[in-house]
Amino acid sequence: MSANNPRRRNSRVRNIQDSVVGVTSSAEDLSTSKALVLVAIIFISSILALGLLYKQFPDLEEEEQKHLHLPWDLEDAKQLGLVLDRYKEKYFYEVLFGVFLVYIFLQTFAIPGSIFLSILSGFLFPFYLALLLVCCCSAIGASLCFFLSNLLGKKLVKRFFPEKAAQWARAVTKHSNNLLNYIIFLRVTPFLPNWFINMSAPVIGVPLTPFALGTFIGVAPPSFVAIQAGQTLHTLTSTSDAWSWTSVTVLSVFALVSLVPVFLKDKLKAKFE
C-alpha cells in the first residue's frame, strides 16, 4: 500500500501539471493583441453599463452629484453613504443593484476600493444581506477576473511577478487534494493580496470551482469585520479603526478552522496506510 503512495502522488502532480498546460495553452492560442482588444471591449462595456445605471438613478441635487463616484477613501465612502441612504427607502433595489454592479466591476478589473464598498454595504443594508452581497460580489468578481487573467495572465504574471507565481504554483501542487481549504485560508489571511490571487490562480492551474467557492466562503470573515464597522461608518476615521484584537482573533480562528479538514484528512490517511 505504501509502495503505491509515490505513484498516486506523482499521478496527482501530473494532473495538476496537465491542468496548468491546458489552461495556459488555451490562453496562448489567443494572441496578446487580440486578448488586449477583448479585455478592452469588456472594460468599455462595463463602463457603459455603469453609465446606464447612473442614468437610471433619480435626479440628485448638485451638492449630492459630486459625491456619487467610486469611493477612494473613507471620507468618500461616508459622503456616498449619506447620499445613498437618503434614496434607499424609495429606490432600494436601484441602490442595491448599484452597489452590486460597482463591487463586481472593481473586483473584475482588480481596482482598489472594494473594502470601502464592504464598509458602505454595512452602513446601507441589514447585516446579513450586506454579508451575502459582499460574498456574492467577491466570488463573481473574482471569477470574472479569473477569466480575464486566463486571457492575459501568463504573460503579465510571469513578467512582473515570476518568483511569487512560481512559489504559489509549488504550493498549489503540494495542496492539490485540499485546494478548497487552501483558497479559503488565503482569503481569510493577508499573506497574499486578493488581486494577486485572482490574477495568478488560472495561470498556475487552480480550477474555477474550488477557486470561486473558496472565495465565497473565505471572504466572509474579513467582510464580517468590515460590514460590522460600516454600521458605525459616521464614527470611523480610518479603515484601521475597523480592526481590533477581537476581529484579529476571529480571523485567526477562521484561518485555523479552514486547515482542520486538511490535518484530519492527513491523519486518517496516515492511519489507514
Score class of each variant (00 low, 15 high):
Ser2Arg: 15
Ala3Phe: 13
Pro6Ile: 08
Pro6Arg: 09
Pro6Leu: 10
Arg7Ala: 06
Arg8Trp: 10
Asn10Gln: 12
Ser11Leu: 11
Arg12Phe: 06
Gln17Trp: 13
Asp18Lys: 10
Val20Cys: 03
Val20Lys: 11
Ser25Pro: 00
Ser25Asn: 03
Ala27Lys: 03
Asp29Pro: 00
Ser33Ile: 08
Ser33Lys: 12
Ser33Asn: 07
Ala35Asn: 07
Ala35Arg: 05
Ala35Asp: 03
Leu36Ala: 10
Leu36Arg: 11
Val37Trp: 12
Leu38Phe: 07
Leu38Tyr: 07
Val39Lys: 10
Ala40Thr: 10
Ile42Gly: 04
Ile44Glu: 09
Ile44Tyr: 13
Ser45Lys: 02
Leu50Ser: 04
Leu53Met: 15
Gln56Tyr: 14
Glu61Gly: 06
Glu63Ala: 09
Gln65Tyr: 10
Gln65Lys: 12
Lys66Pro: 03
His67Tyr: 15
Leu70Tyr: 05
Pro71Trp: 12
Pro71Gln: 13
Trp72Thr: 07
Glu75Asp: 07
Lys78Cys: 09
Lys78Met: 11
Leu80Lys: 00
Val83Asn: 02
Leu84Asp: 03
Arg86Leu: 08
Arg86Pro: 04
Tyr87Leu: 10
Glu89Thr: 11
Lys90Gly: 04
Val95Phe: 05
Leu96Asn: 06
Phe97Met: 04
Gly98Cys: 07
Val99Asn: 01
Leu101Tyr: 06
Tyr103Ala: 13
Gln107Glu: 14
Thr108Cys: 07
Phe109Ile: 09
Ile111Arg: 05
Pro112Gly: 14
Gly113Asp: 10
Ser114Tyr: 11
Ile115Leu: 05
Ile115Lys: 00
Leu120Val: 04
Ser121Glu: 08
Phe123Arg: 04
Phe123Val: 01
Pro126His: 14
Phe127Tyr: 07
Leu129Pro: 00
Leu129Val: 03
Leu132Arg: 07
Cys135Pro: 06
Cys135Met: 15
Cys136Asn: 02
Cys136Ile: 13
Phe146Trp: 13
Phe146Ala: 11
Leu148Arg: 02
Leu148Phe: 01
Asn150Met: 10
Leu151Pro: 06
Leu152Thr: 08
Lys154Met: 09
Lys154His: 15
Lys154Trp: 14
Lys154Asp: 13
Val157Asp: 02
Phe160Asp: 07
Ala165Arg: 01
Ala166Ile: 01
Trp168Thr: 14
Arg170Trp: 04
Arg170Met: 08
Val172Leu: 03
Thr173Met: 12
Lys174Asn: 03
His175Tyr: 15
Asn178Ala: 15
Leu180Cys: 12
Tyr182Asn: 03
Phe185Arg: 01
Phe185Val: 02
Arg187Glu: 11
Val188Asp: 02
Pro190Gly: 00
Pro190Ile: 01
Leu192Asp: 12
Asn194Pro: 06
Ala201Asn: 01
Val203Pro: 00
Phe211Leu: 05
Phe211Asp: 03
Thr215Ala: 02
Thr215Lys: 00
Ile217Trp: 05
Val219Pro: 01
Val219His: 01
Ser223Val: 13
Ala226Ile: 05
Gly230Glu: 09
Gln231Ser: 15
His234Gln: 11
His234Lys: 03
Thr235Ser: 03
Thr235Phe: 00
Ser238Thr: 12
Asp241Gln: 09
Trp243Thr: 14
Thr249Met: 05
Thr249Gln: 01
Val250His: 04
Leu251Arg: 04
Leu256Tyr: 09
Ser258Phe: 03
Leu259Ile: 08
Val260Trp: 05
Pro261Glu: 09
Val262Cys: 06
Val262Leu: 10
Lys267Phe: 02
Leu268Ser: 06
Leu268Lys: 06
Leu268Asn: 08
Phe272Tyr: 08
Glu273Val: 06
Glu273Ala: 14
